[in-house]
Simulated assay, not measured.
Amino acid sequence: MKINPFVGTIAALLATVGAAQAAPTLLTASNVPALAGASVIDFNNAATGNFTSRDFGGVTISTSTANGLAVDSIYSGSYATSGRYVTNYNNGGTLTFSFATAVSAFGFNWGAADQAWTMQVFDLQNVLLSTLNIAAQTSSSGYAGFIGANGNGSTIGSFKLTSAGSTDYVLIDNLRTVAANVPEPGSLALAGLGLALAIGASRRRKSAQAV
């Protein structure tokens, strides 16, 4: 059976788009291609003090525990921090990061995490894309490191951090985000329309040839 070249081209394009949206994967370093050109929130201009939910330039950080988060600088210079940073000062429960605009990748300095954590990554519709395991930090690393996620073609709307233990006092600094290139709904609709028209034209030609 012959395939209309136009139909084949559109089908291949749609297959490529679908294949590009793989599940997000864990990042453990900031100098990776996925974070190239990232915007950085260093919290240094943020007012200190406790909070439950707070926006930091388009990224809202919240917790399930009232006033369980804080902007602080007590341990500045240690645990992968410099200047001010965000911490679950009152041992807040799940930490949620919500992006005002979808991102393709994110990451941040991560310190004092001596317990294992999990990171759940969601899309803009709050659909779970991936659950990533974060190992506990050790003294050999100075209880300091970097974690994040690469969307691998999937757009990210939020993520949640949950400690494997009951509580774990952690510090977060230099939050990096890369804005996602979200396809316009009209572009996808046009691609689908083009495919439908191409299939229809192919069928009409076959009908004409059969007469």
Rank of each mutant, 00 (worst) to 15 (best):
F106R: 13
T118S: 12
A113S: 15
R84E: 05
A136Y: 00
G148F: 04
L129E: 08
N45G: 14
A66W: 05
V127N: 14
T60V: 11
L95E: 15
Y85M: 06
G142C: 02
N181A: 14
V59K: 00
A112N: 15
T87I: 08
G57L: 01
N91W: 06
P185D: 00
Y143M: 09
N90V: 13
L171S: 10
V127R: 15
S104L: 04
A66Y: 04
T101N: 14
S163C: 14
V170Q: 04
S64K: 11
T60C: 03
N152D: 01
G151F: 03
A180R: 07
G186S: 13
G83T: 03
N126I: 02
T138V: 01
N109V: 04
A179H: 06
P183T: 01
E184C: 08
A100Y: 07
A189R: 02
V103E: 08
S73H: 12
V71W: 02
N126H: 08
S158V: 03
D55L: 07
V71G: 04
Y75M: 09
A70V: 02
S154R: 10
A144Q: 05
F146V: 05
T167F: 03
L190C: 02
S163M: 09
D173H: 06
L188Y: 11
G142M: 07
S154D: 11
L124G: 11
A105N: 04
Q125K: 12
G107D: 06
N45P: 08
I156S: 02
S187T: 04
I172T: 15
Q115C: 07
V71P: 10
N50G: 04
W110S: 06
S139R: 08
A116H: 03
R54I: 05
S154G: 09
M119E: 15
G157D: 01
Q120F: 00
A164G: 01
T118A: 12
F56G: 13
W110H: 12
N91G: 07
G93I: 03
V71H: 00
F97K: 10
S78N: 13
N174H: 14
P185S: 01
T87A: 13
V121S: 08
G77E: 11
F106C: 13
A66E: 15
I156E: 00
A191G: 10
Y75T: 11
T118E: 12
G68I: 07
Y169H: 10
K160L: 06
T94Y: 12
A102I: 14
T167C: 00
T96W: 10
V178Q: 01
N109M: 11
N90K: 06
N174A: 14
N126R: 13
I74Y: 12
D72W: 13
A80K: 05
